[in-house]
Write a protein that binds this DNA or RNA. Sequence first.
DNA 1: ATATTTTACTAACAAGCGTTAGTTTTGCAG
DNA 2: CTGCAAAACTAACGCTTGTTAGTAAAATAT
Lengths: 196, 196
Amino acid sequence: MAKAVTEKTISRKKQIVSVATRLFHEKGYHATSMRHLAEQLGMEAASLYNHISGKDELLQQICFDMATHYNAHMEQVENASSTAIERVEKLVRFHIGMMLSHFEEVYVTNRDWKHLKEPLLANFLQQRKAYEKRFATLVEKAVLSREIQAVHPHAAVLTILSAVRGIEFWQRNPRNISAEQLEEDMVKILLNGLRK
Amino acid sequence: MAKAVTEKTISRKKQIVSVATRLFHEKGYHATSMRHLAEQLGMEAASLYNHISGKDELLQQICFDMATHYNAHMEQVENASSTAIERVEKLVRFHIGMMLSHFEEVYVTNRDWKHLKEPLLANFLQQRKAYEKRFATLVEKAVLSREIQAVHPHAAVLTILSAVRGIEFWQRNPRNISAEQLEEDMVKILLNGLRK
DNA sequence: ATATTTTACTAACAAGCGTTAGTTTTGCAG
DNA sequence: CTGCAAAACTAACGCTTGTTAGTAAAATAT
């Protein structure tokens, strides 16, 4: 054999996914063409197919990478020794942190997962649903132990997850307020909103 | 003259915009083709151009309709005789109501405004920015009159607007919880979160 | 150094896109 | 009933899309 699937092969592929993430974020999945993507990488569109099977795969890589990342963190939070409300706060801060440090991937996943193709679309949706369920269970525990007020756990999760998503507006216009203050204010509103 | 621009002409155009809204919501702006849109209306793609100038115009109609709607309501709230926090609550409930009653238009506007073409894209962004500014001013007044805790007004607006956007997840899966309870829980979390 | 594999290239495909031109049908006004 | 405008049709345009085939260059292993 000539070269195992090591370093450079992988790094080239990762590079492609990385640039694709940026373009998908800027223009959206369907409005991004393989030719434009190739151009940004200094190559021809046809050459991309030496590294990936098709445009689909790029979106898959992004979305399922995120899903795996989220699930891994959820496991970690569930296994930590904390009160229920502390776990919820950890999740809130994690999601805020992801929006700040992995903005483009999160953004693309949130907006373009709809364009995944069918066996994987169902898989993705199921993972997302399961994640929200685990999140809701943690909120429910905090309600039952009277650490927070009586809200429907699903409504709380919905509110939290989407509030955090709003950081995308801040990313477009980050001058008014620092990332740290945004995080603190957002945690303040959401956690104080849940408390009694 | 044969027929003024009345009833039927307008209603046909509105019908087109209405179906386009549904398709844009389902598939996104770029993934929706004029041929598919026409098919859903029982006509040929070319016939659409007797009613609209192009695909762009459909997106414009949707986005600027929403912007006008929002601005009109903002004016109404500003002129109402209420405390600052009451105004904020009115806005929160208005946005929740819009997500529930005009879901598809709001969704498409939120996601696809990026694809507006240039003189109008700038116009839209400026309107959006101005709206957020007016919203933030109301929050700031509530902070200054000590009705709510000291948060950065922009962070609060960001949190509120995006939390409400999360109703799109509920729309996909409305069995777990009623619209009314969702609204009450969301208002509870957000308003209680703002209060001291 | 040679053999082998990986990666890039050029050229082209079939399909789909938004849109226009020209024509026929429909439907209301006089 | 006639005339005219609105709204549908067919056909086609130029262009872009994702992707494949075949080949040349580059990089690696022995």
